[in-house]
Each structure stands twice: as C-alpha cells, then as structure tokens.
Amino acid sequence: MRDHTDQLRANWAKDAAPAVPACRVDVSDLTVARDRKTLLNIPALTLNAPGPSVIIGPNGAGKSVLLRLIHGLLPATTGQIALTDPSGGGAVKQAMLFQKPVLLRRSVSGNLGFVLRQQGVPWRARRARIDELLAQGHLQTRAKQPARSLSGGEQQRLALVRALATGPDLLLLDEPTAPLDPAATREIEGLIRQISASGIKIVMVTHDLGQARRLASEVILLHRGQVQEQAPTDRFFALPRSAAAQAFLSGDLLR
C-alpha cells in the first residue's frame, strides 16, 4: 500500500503537464426549468482546459444537473451542449462516474467484462483488457470477488476503471470521493491524474475545495444555476474576482 501511494505521488509530479485533451465542451444558451423553477441558466460556457475542469458550488447550485445534461441523462429546456474533438477524431465518447458507484451484482472481473462485451470487444481480447484495467485500478487481487463486497474506495476505483473500459474521450465525475476516507480519496485522485494525463478530458463536480485545488486546471463556480466565475485554479483561489467566489471561499455563500 505504501509503495502504491509513493507511486501515485511520483505519477502526480510526472503528470503535471497533461497531454492535449481529447475533447472540449461548449455550452450555449442553456436553460433547464422544472416546475417553473429555473435550475440552470448558462448563456455560454466552454470547458477546454488541458487538465480537469472542476465545478464547485453550494448544494442545489445545479452542478450535478449540468453533468447529467452533458451526459445526456437529462434534457435541456433550451440551448445546446456541443462536444467536439479538436483532433477531428469523429464522435466524442463519454462516460460518467456517479457519486455512489452502481456496481453490477457480479464479480469485479464480471463488471469489467460486461462493459467490454457491451462495447463489442471480442471475447478473446477481453481477458487481457480486463487484466490491464484491474492493474490500473490496483484491483488484481480482487478479480474474482463479488464487486459489492469491496470496500468503498475499491468500489469507486472499480467504477472508475469500468468507466475507462468504454474508451471515453470525456469523463464526467460527480463527487467521486464524497463518501470516502482520506486514503481512499488520495488513491482516486491519483487515478484521476493518470487518466487526465492520458488525454481524456475530465469534468468533475466536488464539494472539497482542497480537492479542487489539487486536481483542477480550471475552476467553475456555480451558484443558483449560474456560472459566477470561471478561472485557472491558481488565480481562482488567490484572487477570486466575483463577489460570489469571495463569499464561497470564506464559507459565507448562502443558498
């Protein structure tokens, strides 16, 4: 376990300059209304920072709604979300990680095999790919265990590599470490850095400002369904410009 953490730290340093992201997200004239209440109102927002774009904000700000919209799990009332691959590599594939991992009632390998089969990976190639993914998630010794008997951190690591099994260009993470302890959180963050460095664009929601500072290339503050500020991470935390950001960082932003 110790070696593993050290390795993650080493990776962090190595991954400091991510590759060109595979994907950019352009939101235009977006509104979402439910029961005559406006949940989101974003005239324009572009997510194309090289590393993770991290969305923060108080509860009920519309962070998860935005992720679900990008993923296509919710319909927009008006407006568009366009995903483009700057290298011109065709349709953008995306995957999403939910706050509480939804693991199938099968073994750890079975969960990965299910997604690979769904992706049309031939049976012969699946075994090798499963082993790669298990190694990436540090789950080799867990392969045959029922997925739901894993610890919370292991379950989220499995959910993360299972999302990778779909071969995404864009990975959406909805508070992936919210229920985890600090050690498990650090492992997930290490994986997220590796994934970002491999060229997969990451858009993530978090409540953890420390995590935003550690992972983000840019920070987006949502409040009452509107983007209050979008800035590079260092600038956002050192010199927040909007009143909302200043209030949020000092813990004074109300719903």
Partner: peptide, 12 residues
C-alpha cells in the same frame, strides 16, 4: 431504479 442511469450511461 438503482441501475437505470448507470446502464444508460454505458450505452444500453
């Protein structure tokens, strides 16, 4: 109820 979003996310 538990699986719907996840399975849809996986393209089913």
């Amino acid at each position: 109820g538990e699986y719907a979003d996840q399975l849809r996310s996986l393209g089913l």
